[in-house]
Structure formats: C-alpha cells, structure tokens
C-alpha cells in the first residue's frame, strides 16, 4: 500500500520507488528488489497501477508505472480507515501520515480519526475495568497505557506536521 501511495505522488520508475521508500521508511530494514517486484506485479494484477511505456527487455526497475483510478480510491480508503487499535501500529500510522502529506491530503483528519478510534477502545477498556478482578484490571490497564502512549505520539506528530512536511519535500 505504501508503494501505491508513493505512486500517487507521481509516476515513477521501479528503482526510483525503491530509493524513495528506503529514504523515507527504510530506517529499520530496506526493501529488497524482489519484494518490490512482487508487490508491483500484484498491484498490476489488481488494476491499481499500469505501465506507461514498456521498454522491452528491461526488468521492473526500468519500467515506468502510473497509478490508476482504482488505485487512487484504494489509497484514499487505506489512509482514512483507522487501524484496529493495538500496540506497535506506529509504523503503519507513520507511513499513512507520510503518504497523506506527500499527496497533500488531510493528514490531520487521519490522525483525528485514529485518535477517536483509540479513545473508543480506551473507553471500552475502562468500562471493562470497573468491578473486574485484579488480573483483568491489570490487563486492561496495560493496554490502556500503551494506547495512551500511542495517543501521545499522535499528538506529537500532529503538532510537528509542518516540520515533517518540510523534511519530506527536501
């Protein structure tokens, strides 16, 4: 989905995509070329992208890809469907935020949406806690604190949106 999002910013060659991905998201691990080709093939099959000018004899990295309308819709719904709140979704959320910024979409809105989802979940957990036994309450509190950490992060990112935009466009 990230690649699709990157393509929304403009058509690009395969190797361009890899470089951009690595630059933005490859802090933990870089994407292997094989993975990119497989993903691109799948996207082609799902009609989300199309080739522009097929230069015969070259691998995917030399081919130029362009996003379709279907692809566009998929990116939108991906961006604005909040993830199921659980710990360790930062990377996903981060990616969504970056893409949203790149395509000049309303990153604030997506963060708000996620925040709302988080708070809903926290409300559920808080109700569950009431009258529960020690173990259950402890479990709920554990989840609550992690969700709170997420929200802190969301708040921070929200506040730093402008800085983020500038660093991406450099």
């Amino acid at each position: 989905m990230i690649l699709l999002g990157l393509l929304e910013t403009g058509s690009a060659y395969g190797y361009d995509l890899k470089h951009r991905y690595d630059r933005l998201f490859g802090l933990r691990k870089r994407l292997a070329f094989g993975q990119i080709y497989a993903t691109l093939a799948r996207l082609m099959r799902d009609n989300c992208i199309e080739e522009l000018a097929a230069e015969a004899g070259h691998g995917p990295e030399r081919r130029r890809y362009h996003i379709t309308d279907t692809g566009l819709r998929r990116v939108e719904s991906w961006l604005f469907t909040p993830d199921i709140p659980h710990e360790n979704l930062q990377s996903n959320l981060f990616a969504k935020t970056v893409i949203a910024l790149l395509i000049d979409d309303d990153a604030e809105r997506l963060l708000d949406g996620q925040r709302h989802a988080h708070l809903e979940r926290m409300r559920q957990l808080t109700s569950e806690k009431r009258g529960a036994d020690f173990a259950t309450a402890a479990l709920c509190d554990h989840a609550l604190f992690h969700l709170e950490a997420d929200l802190r992060w969301i708040d921070l990112i929200s506040a730093r949106l402008r800085d983020l935009r500038e660093s991406i466009e450099r």
């Binding site: 809105r109 708070l119 926290m122």
Partner: peptide, 24 residues
C-alpha cells in the same frame, strides 16, 4: 489532555486553534 481521564467520558471533542475539529 490526559487520554486515560478522557476515557471515562461518554464522548470527546477536540479543540484546536479555537475551534472544534473533531467530526465524530
């Protein structure tokens, strides 16, 4: 500003820059 406190509420509204920004 504390989420765990807000979790005791039925719903929340977000105020940003003097306006309510949450559409939920």
């Amino acid at each position: 500003h504390d989420a765990r406190t807000a979790a005791y509420a039925d719903r929340e509204v977000i105020v940003r820059d003097g306006q309510i920004r949450s559409g939920f």
